[in-house]
């Protein structure tokens, strides 16, 4: 406890106590639900095709959203980290808007653009993509609500890369592209990776916007709600537990990778 000159006094003890309360608040409900579950029922639930499909769809759709986010978000993050222009603060604020709006409202907003009666919806329909009641709809709902995590994290990562490293690489013969891929991107990769994991996890956990845009095919979070509404708590709980376990496993796995990377 006494690292970095940390001393225990009245204030720190109070802070530790307050911290413990919030830690319990986070862990107890999750732990209790997991621990109280009957392994047999959990296994049975996992064998249900509907459940497995829903969990798989959550993971898969969130992955597509995240890859799309990487392609479109990382370049923007780089621009925001490297340049100053009028309205930059406004754009940075804009990027965080999906975090602050209610996600059901976000779903409705998306419907107004990607719905089959609206412009983007009609345009995509021509190339065979429909967003309502489809995986594509789930993907854009996830993309919308989770992209801020990736952009913000990547931006911080790029900011930490000394501009002069890019400058040196240019003088050594690197084009702007080569400079980006050989210097900036590798050096920001840990932050980008952390942002990617956050975005993926946030995508898997999305509920509100998906509910509005694409109730079917059913992702895990919608399935939990569907079972709760239709059959009640006892039927919703095993699915919820499974979803929590999957998310935790993914999250812990990636955290470990990042942590190892930091130590190396």
């Amino acid at each position: 406890m006494n690292k970095k000159g940390f001393t225990t006094n009245g204030m720190t003890l109070t802070f530790i106590l307050l911290g413990l309360i919030i830690l319990l608040f986070i862990t107890v409900p999750l732990l209790k639900m997991v621990v109280a579950s009957d392994i047999g029922i959990l296994l049975d639930t996992l064998l249900e095709k509907e459940v497995r499909n829903a969990i798989w769809l959550s993971i898969y759709a969130a992955l597509i959203a995240t890859v799309t986010g990487l392609l479109l978000g990382v370049p923007l993050a780089y621009i925001l980290a490297r340049s100053n222009f009028r309205g930059k603060t406004f754009i940075e604020g804009l990027i965080d808007v999906p975090i602050v709006v209610p996600h059901s409202a976000a779903g409705i907003a998306l419907l107004f653009v990607f719905g089959s009666n609206f412009l983007a919806g009609k345009a995509f329909h021509l190339v065979g993509i429909d967003f309502v009641y489809s995986t594509a709809g789930i993907v854009i709902a996830m993309l919308f609500v989770s992209i801020p995590f990736l952009i913000d994290s990547a931006k911080e990562g790029f900011k930490k890369v000394d501009v002069r490293l890019e400058k040196v690489s240019r003088t050594l013969g690197a084009s702007p592209w080569q400079s980006f891929f050989r210097v900036s991107l590798p050096l920001a990769s840990r932050s980008i990776f952390a942002g990617t994991v956050m975005m993926w996890a946030r995508g898997i956990s999305e509920f509100g916007a998906i509910l509005i845009l694409a109730y079917h095919p059913m992702v895990a979070s919608v399935l939990v709600w569907n079972r709760f509404e239709t059959y009640g708590l006892d039927y919703a709980r095993p699915v919820a537990v499974l979803l929590i376990l999957v998310c935790l496993l993914l999250f812990i796995g990636f955290r470990t990778v990042i942590y190892r990377g930091e130590k190396a």
């Binding site: 000394d162 002069r164 490293l165 400058k167 040196v168 690489s169 240019r170 003088t171 050594l172 013969g173 690197a174 084009s175 210097v183 590798p186 050096l187």
Partner: peptide, 20 residues
């Protein structure tokens, strides 16, 4: 002319070595 085509190299005060 772009810097990569000049053949002029620079050593910065804090060296700016690629840390990775």
């Amino acid at each position: 002319l772009e810097p990569e085509k000049r053949g002029i190299s620079i050593v910065y005060q804090d060296q700016a070595l690629f840390p990775h």
